[in-house]
Amino acid sequence: MWGNYKMKKILLMLLFATFLFGGAILAATGGDQAKDDEYDEDEYGPADPIIWVKPVKSVVFEHKIHTMEAGLDCDSCHDDLFEMEAGVAEENDDFTMESLYDGGYCGSCHDGDTAFASDTRCTACHIGVRGHTRLVGEEEMPSH
């Protein structure tokens, strides 16, 4: 009778321990997943895409693809190729495809060796007016 009670108690504790341990494991893995999903802006740059509208509408740049996925550091591009401040490059007169072909700006890597050449796969970066509207919204559309 007494032994039965003791056994029950042990079983109960075992069950409790299993729950606790399992919960801990789940919490740990869940935490890990959250860490993977969490994009660290301090480490990888702004989460929002950079959108250039000059000289043509529109070109998109994703920090995530270049830093987190391709493994580039901030100083791979900043501040030699691009100013940290958004929108500075597109005010330059030489922010053109011609400069890219000469190894300037994106062309520094997008030369066909390090990354796909600037004169190929146009729509990988050029999202056009349609893509711009999708990202930014209708109000940015030119009225014509």
């Binding site: 043509v56 509408k57 146009c122 729509t123 050029h126 999202i127 056009g128 007016v129 349609r130 893509g131 030119p142 014509h144």
Partner: peptide, 16 residues
């Protein structure tokens, strides 16, 4: 075709 980037300058020019 593969060179088109949908800048829509053609549309603007046509409209004008």
């Amino acid at each position: 075709e593969h060179l088109c980037i949908d800048c829509e300058r053609c549309k603007e020019a046509c409209t004008k």
